[in-house]
Design a protein around this nucleic acid. Structure first.
Length: 282
DNA sequence: GAGAGTGTTGTAAC
DNA sequence: GGTTACAACACTCT
């Protein structure tokens, strides 16, 4: 499900097609998925689409925004009025069948195009917020992993007061935002650091290695359009990503490590599946 | 058919 | 304040 590269892929695509579109109608299929009043967004025009961490912000005029988080299973699918996919890809059957059983909210624009918010597990949400509301929502977010301003010094200061395991700390969105479980596992492998090490035990040279590795796997993920397991993540054109073909360790239990040839093992850390090399990440 | 596992994150108890 | 377990929910896999 969506981690930062997936969200970034969706945002780039939506930013290319949504600005200038007038929201003519909104259908809420699941109350829990839409927080606000549809009257607050009907008649508004999309000005731009951005993101903060893994939340997507659809800017409307007059101090209104639709903020959305896809959580585990959310999808945002855009279809034009002819129901062709935005990118001109061959139309998948299920796109012509929208809304589907998992569609929670749909938007219809004045030119006949539509945006569907699908979310099987209903963990995700859409909220209508003012600019100030969005800032408040984002105030606890740590610096984005793709933000050049995120420095080794910053991480060093944060890590110094964290005794818990390295992997849990880098997954903490208040430390830095963007890394999810798959990319966290992969980043630690590329950096050849143990997920179990206490964060405060890291030397600055190791933090530097970790930050570089994190950016490397995230950028690779963005380049490949995200990660799709079980067809559960698709971008706004309904297309799967391909990072799953390039993962370093995630889901590769029993296989050999690309860094050193060691055996990749799986365990559980903080309730999350954790894959690492038993040799170079020991 | 029962039970465990799934890519997120907010909350609450310690 | 930091750490940890768990809940929110639906579906697939063992």
């Amino acid at each position: 499900m969506p981690e930062l590269p997936e969200v970034e892929t969706i945002v780039r695509r939506l930013q290319a097609v949504l600005p200038g579109k007038l929201i003519q109608d909104v259908t809420v299929y699941k109350e829990k998925s839409f927080q606000g009043e549809v009257e607050q967004v009907i008649g508004q025009t999309v000005s731009q689409v951005t993101r903060g961490g893994k939340t997507i912000r659809i800017h409307l005029g007059s101090d209104r925004n639709i903020l959305t988080h896809l959580k585990m299973t959310g999808q945002l699918i855009y279809v034009d009025k002819t129901r062709r996919l935005g990118g001109g890809h061959p139309t998948a059957d299920w796109v012509t069948q929208l809304p589907s059983a998992h569609t929670r909210v749909s938007y219809t624009f004045s030119d006949g195009s539509q945006l569907f918010f699908n979310d099987m597990r209903i963990f995700g949400w859409m909220r209508v917020l003012t600019d100030e509301g969005v800032e408040r929502e984002w105030s606890s977010l740590g610096p984005d992993i793709t933000d050049p301003a995120l420095s080794v010094e910053h991480l060093q200061a944060v890590f110094a007061r964290r005794s818990s395991s390295l992997k849990l700390v880098i997954l903490d969105g208040t430390v830095m935002s963007g890394l999810g479980n798959i990319y966290a596992c992969d980043a630690l492998n590329v950096a050849q650091l143990s997920p179990f090490r206490s964060a405060q035990s890291l030397l600055s040279e190791e933090i530097d290695r970790l930050l570089r590795a994190s950016r490397q796997v995230i950028n690779k993920g963005i380049e490949l359009g995200g990660t799709t397991f079980d067809g559960r993540y698709v971008d706004s054109d309904g297309m799967a990503g391909s990072y799953q073909d390039r993962v370093q360790v995630y889901g590769r239990e029993g296989k050999s490590c690309y860094q050193c040839g060691g055996l990749i093992v799986k365990t559980k850390l903080g309730g999350r599946g954790t894959y690492y090399c038993s040799q170079c990440q020991a």
